[in-house]
Computed example of a mutant assay.
Amino acid sequence: MIFDAIIPGAILFSIGGRFLRRQLKGDMGEQSVSLTIRGMGLPIQNNVTIPGKRGLTQIDHLVLTRSAIVVLETKNYSGSLYDNGRGKGGSWIQKFPSGKQNNLHNPLDQNYGHIKSVGTIVPGVPVTGFVVLAGSASFPNGVPDGVLMLRDLKRKLKEMDRGEGPNPASIQDAWNKLQQVDQRDSASHREQMRQVTGGGMTYWLQAGAPWLTGAGVALVLGGFFL
């Protein structure tokens, strides 16, 4: 009888834990970037959801500098990364000492779409962006243009924020508008997740990862102690 609870619990824990670890790793990377920027005293918006070309799009960070609004996409990767190009068919190759490797969607393409979405909302205002690597990953063949290691982020933002006086009125107005269109309600968040995951089982597994993991732990413990 004990295995009647332990085996299903272990399965739930394994499935939920895999999705939950991925979420927590991403959250840790985004938090490290946010803390770095807040420590500089620059205005920042995190987890921004705005209209995009194909519906809602989620942006990890928007930063206000004197020269431009900066769009940041954070990735908390490890291993060795190799840039395989942009556009259709482009990807990053992630390799580990064990010999395992993954094909990753090129985040530069992802962030390009974010930059375009922001530019559509605030036309005529300088908008630029970078992919920030917050993990231990490295590029043995050189870091691609548009990518910043976390240690280089502060230097780059300082360069963009140089100058005397307040932010130009047009950039400040654009910043205020982006705050207004940011859709932070839970319904918009769920809709954006459905678009990214394609809906179906993947969406439910990602959204329910904490519950699946907790249920798995409860079943395993119940199998031992009940």
Results as ranks from 00 to 15, higher is better:
18 R>H: 12
68 A>W: 05
22 R>C: 08
28 M>W: 13
103 N>Y: 04
123 P>A: 07
100 K>N: 14
73 E>C: 04
17 G>E: 08
130 F>G: 01
112 Y>R: 15
51 P>T: 11
85 G>Q: 01
27 D>P: 00
22 R>H: 15
48 V>G: 03
82 Y>A: 01
122 V>C: 11
136 S>E: 12
37 I>T: 09
78 S>Q: 14
61 H>I: 03
114 H>W: 11
22 R>S: 15
48 V>A: 04
73 E>H: 04
55 G>E: 08
97 P>K: 07
128 T>G: 08
35 L>H: 11
28 M>K: 14
45 Q>D: 06
82 Y>D: 00
141 N>T: 01
65 T>L: 14
55 G>I: 08
115 I>G: 06
18 R>D: 09
33 V>Y: 03
76 N>P: 11
125 V>I: 09
40 M>N: 10
133 L>P: 03
63 V>I: 09
93 I>P: 00
83 D>R: 01
135 G>T: 07
29 G>D: 02
71 V>W: 05
90 G>L: 02
38 R>C: 07
92 W>I: 04
30 E>W: 09
78 S>I: 07
73 E>T: 03
19 F>N: 11
51 P>K: 11
112 Y>S: 13
33 V>N: 02
129 G>K: 07
79 G>K: 02
101 Q>R: 13
82 Y>S: 00
143 V>D: 02
97 P>C: 10
120 T>H: 11
75 K>M: 11
109 D>A: 05
34 S>H: 09
139 F>R: 00
42 L>Y: 15
94 Q>L: 03
134 A>S: 15
127 V>A: 08
144 P>Y: 01
146 G>M: 03
20 L>D: 11
36 T>P: 09
102 N>M: 12
36 T>A: 15
129 G>V: 06
23 Q>T: 14
46 N>P: 01
61 H>V: 02
107 P>M: 03
68 A>I: 05
15 I>C: 04
69 I>G: 05
66 R>S: 10
91 S>E: 08
121 I>V: 15
141 N>F: 00
26 G>N: 13
53 K>Y: 09
41 G>D: 13
113 G>H: 14
36 T>Q: 14
114 H>L: 10
119 G>P: 03
145 D>R: 10
102 N>T: 10
107 P>D: 04
124 G>A: 07
96 F>V: 12
44 I>R: 10
75 K>C: 10
119 G>R: 08
25 K>I: 12
32 S>D: 08
58 Q>K: 09
78 S>L: 07
88 K>I: 02
106 N>I: 01
119 G>H: 05
115 I>M: 14
72 L>K: 03
116 K>Q: 15
117 S>I: 06
127 V>R: 06
137 A>N: 08
46 N>D: 14
51 P>C: 12
53 K>C: 05
116 K>P: 00
66 R>T: 07
47 N>W: 07
120 T>P: 00
69 I>P: 04
16 G>S: 13
27 D>K: 14
86 R>W: 06
99 G>S: 13
59 I>G: 03
69 I>L: 09
47 N>H: 11
86 R>M: 12
110 Q>P: 11
122 V>A: 11
106 N>L: 00
89 G>E: 04
102 N>K: 14
49 T>M: 13
117 S>M: 06
21 R>H: 15
